[in-house]
C-alpha cells in the first residue's frame, strides 16, 4: 500500500513537469495548428543554455535562468522571423518537417557550441527525502513540481486574464476572425514561439533538477505525444490531466511491471494508452472533434 502511494506521488510529481512540456507544445498548436516535433530538443537547448550560464558565464541560478530565457526567446524569434514567416500558409507537412529539421539542427549545434561545458544544473536543495505520512517524497521532485504548478497557473492567468492571451485564444479559435478584429497574426505567432522558448528553459531546468544532467532530455519531448493525444491537442486542461495520467502510469508500470519483464516497459506503457485513446476518442479526452457544417 505504501509502495503504491509512493509510486502515485512520484508519478504526480513527474506529471507536473510533463504538463509544462505539454503546454509548450499546445501553445503553438493552438495558435498556428503547427505540430512541433522537436519539443524535446527545445528543452535540451533551454537547459544547456541555463547550464552554460552557470558554468560558462559564472551566473547564479536566477541569473542563469534569465540568461537562458533571453537566449531561447532569441532563438524562437529568429526561427519565427527567418523560417516560419516565409512558410506562412504552406502545407502542414512542410511546417512539421521544418520543426524536425530545427530539432536536429539544435542537437547538432548544441554539441558544438556547448562542447566542454557541463550540462548539469546543481540544485540548491537537500537530498534527503521528506517522509510525509509514511510515504517518502524526493524534495527536488516536490519543489520541481511546485514550480511547474506555479508556471502553469501563471500561464493560465496569461491566457485568460491578459489582452495578449485573449488575442492568442482568438487566433486559436479562428484566424480569419482574429484578423478581422485587428489582431496582428505574425506578431502573436512570434509571441507564442517566445513562450515556447521560456517554457523550454523552465521545464528543461526542472527536468535537470530531477533527472540530473542534460542526458536524454530530448526523449522527454517524445512523452508529449501520448500526453497531448490523450488530453486533446487543443485543450490546456486536457493536456495537464493527460500529463498526470502519463506520469502516474509510467510510475506504476515502472514499479510493478518493469521488475517482471525486465525494465523499460514503463516507457512503452504511455504509448499503449495513446493507441487506446486513438481508438476510443481520436480527438482526445478533452479535445473537441472538428464538426463541419455542410
Amino acid at each position: 500500500m505504501e509502495f503504491l502511494a509512493f509510486l502515485v506521488v512520484d508519478g504526480v510529481l513527474a506529471g507536473a513537469i510533463y504538463a509544462l512540456v505539454a503546454l509548450a507544445f499546445v501553445v503553438v498548436y493552438k495558435a498556428s495548428r503547427m505540430i512541433n516535433f522537436a519539443v524535446g530538443d527545445w528543452m535540451m537547448l533551454g537547459s544547456r543554455m541555463v547550464a552554460s550560464g552557470i558554468h560558462g558565464v559564472g551566473l547564479g541560478l536566477g541569473g542563469a535562468l534569465a540568461f537562458g530565457c533571453v537566449g531561447m526567446v532569441a532563438v524562437a524569434m529568429a526561427f519565427d522571423r527567418v523560417v516560419l514567416r516565409r512558410l506562412f500558409s504552406r502545407s502542414l507537412l512542410t511546417l512539421i518537417m521544418v520543426t524536425i529539421g530545427l530539432g536536429i539542427f539544435m542537437r547538432g549545434s548544441a554539441a558544438l557550441v556547448f562542447a566542454g561545458l557541463p550540462g548539469g544544473i546543481a540544485r540548491p536543495l537537500p537530498l534527503d527525502p521528506l517522509v510525509i505520512v509514511g510515504v517518502p517524497v524526493a524534495v527536488e521532485k516536490l519543489v520541481a513540481a511546485a514550480i511547474a504548478g506555479a508556471c502553469i497557473g501563471a500561464l493560465s492567468w496569461f491566457f485568460h486574464g491578459s489582452r495578449t492571451g485573449l488575442a492568442l485564444r482568438a487566433i486559436a479559435s479562428d484566424q480569419q476572425v482574429a484578423m478581422a478584429v485587428g489582431i496582428d497574426l505574425h506578431r502573436h505567432f512570434a509571441i507564442a514561439w517566445g513562450l515556447v522558448g521560456v517554457l523550454s528553459v523552465l521545464s528543461g531546468t526542472l527536468w535537470s533538477f530531477v533527472a540530473g544532467g542534460g542526458f536524454g532530455i530530448e526523449l522527454l519531448g517524445l512523452k508529449v505525444f501520448p500526453i497531448v493525444i490523450v488530453g486533446g491537442l487543443d485543450s490546456f486542461p486536457g493536456s495537464i490531466i493527460g500529463a498526470f495520467i502519463v506520469g502516474i502510469l509510467e510510475s506504476l508500470t515502472a514499479g510493478y511491471v518493469d521488475p517482471l519483464v525486465g525494465g523499460g516497459f514503463s516507457h512503452v506503457a504511455s504509448y499503449l494508452v495513446l493507441m487506446a485513446a486513438l481508438f476510443v476518442r481520436p480527438y482526445g479526452l478533452f479535445g473537441r472533434p472538428d464538426i463541419v457544417r455542410v
Binding site: L166, R169, A170, S173, D174, Q176, V177, A178, A180, R288
Partner: peptide, 10 residues
C-alpha cells in the same frame, strides 16, 4: 464570423 468557442463577453 463568431469566435464560437469564446464567450459573448470575450
Amino acid at each position: 464570423g463568431m469566435l464560437a468557442r469564446m464567450t459573448v463577453l470575450e
